[in-house]
Design a protein around this nucleic acid. Structure first.
Lengths: 232, 232
DNA sequence: CTCTATAAAATCGTATAGGATATAGTATTG
DNA sequence: CAATACTATATCCTATACGATTTTATAGAG
């Protein structure tokens, strides 16, 4: 029987073994989640328990538990006696629905966040927006990856300052699906977003909630329009 | 030994094909979900796998998978080497956040739904609102139960007509937690809500999106204020 | 009596084997 | 060539043993 506590690696698999600091089921969940987010498991593709057993070198039990959790989060779907599949790619319809949701929540959050901003928080937002401006690396793929992550942080920080964890969690949850979509279509997050972020920051700095709300709305609408060609 | 509840046979064929409608894990999920929603499992209470094994007469595997799924949906929480617990009762903070979310989404949905209403749909909404008016039964508890369920249907129907499944799913998901809260505090849904529903219907019938939006906002605000005393 | 330390019990996590069932592909037969 | 039967594969479910950790109980020291 394989004991994960032992650090001896008999096969030397590159996919890596899993440390057992937390529960194994939790670690397996993280590992599958990461593979979904990095497209190592493509949307719609099958996910067999046995493959994961071999890859992670753990038993069925924690894998099933982890897959159940991912099912509950909507990231995988299960068909009885067929097995698990990664959730299908986002549809155009779903895309529109997501942006409708964002437009309802994020501008309002920007307005609400305005009142809570002090110098420290403003600096945090500037930092998040500023990091994006630094064009790190020449690799297009990598640059997008950094940019997208930072964009997500920028938006999430605003949600944090808006002081509604429920809405924040809701958007973060949706973002996982959205992230996969962006990766699939190699959709660049163009540098136009930088100016829009700047406009939001300006409104924040001025303490103008109405302007922040409007700037956020414009930003999200533009973001939607930038990504829309991916559906053609 | 086997769970006898599952074998629903379809007209004795000689071959005797017994098909299982859905997976055991799925059935276990439904069963636990129902117990959570009916408060047979109280918020915050422990959920031991072994107890479920005895109660449902199934093995660990499907139970763990079902619990994982419930964890993914946020209905149970897991602590490593401690076990599963039902999600804790909603806090005052969370309650406020939920109503903030509803106020952002549902009035807008009411406005959007207005444009899609025809006679048939209007009749459906009237029916949903009308059923509540019929004071079915004398049992206070039962009456509340029927009322609450119908109220949920009324709101959900409006979301359906607003044609944004993502937002609809989001609110439905939150509603599960909310439902538990209402049951916990025995908070009556008073008949005041009936007038407010009537106002929404009137706006719908008039095709007045603005009025529908406003009526929905007022209704949700009042709903919040009616439930607020539960936190004292 | 209180506090601490050790031991026992309960609970959870993991691993493994194996039986039952459904799907898919292949082979056989009419 | 078409229809049926069979095999292989994959999945689901069950059962059980054992390890790991927390909780509880008990005993002893201050």
């Amino acid at each position: 029987m394989q004991n994960p506590d032992l650090t001896v690696d008999n096969e030397g698999r590159p996919s890596g073994r899993i440390q057992r600091a937390n529960s194994l089921a939790g670690d397996v969940y993280e590992a599958i989640f990461a593979q979904l987010m990095s497209l190592r498991i493509a949307p719609g593709s099958r996910i067999t328990v046995d493959n994961l057993v071999k890859e992670f070198n753990v038993s069925h039990t924690p894998i099933r538990e982890a897959l159940g959790r991912l099912e509950g989060e909507g990231l995988v779907v299960k068909t009885h006696l067929i097995g698990y599949r990664a959730a299908p790619q986002i549809t155009r319809r779903r895309f529109d629905e997501l942006y409708e949701l964002r437009l309802l929540l994020e501008p309002a959050a920007a307005a609400k966040a305005t009142a809570t901003l002090d110098d420290e928080r403003l600096a945090i937002l500037r930092e998040a927006a500023g990091v994006m401006a630094r064009r790190v690396g020449k690799d297009e793929r990598l640059r997008y990856s950094n940019f997208a992550r930072q964009d997500a942080i920028f938006h999430d920080k605003i949600m944090e300052f808006a002081q509604n964890e429920l809405i924040r969690e809701t958007l973060n949850h949706q973002h996982t699906h959205f992230h996969i979509f962006r990766l699939m279509y190699h959709s660049r997050v163009t540098e136009e977003a930088l100016d829009e972020h700047e406009a939001i920051l300006t409104a924040f700095a001025a303490g103008d909630a109405g302007a922040a709300k409007k700037a956020m709305r414009v930003h999200i609408e533009n973001s939607r329009d930038r990504l829309l060609p991916a559906f053609e």
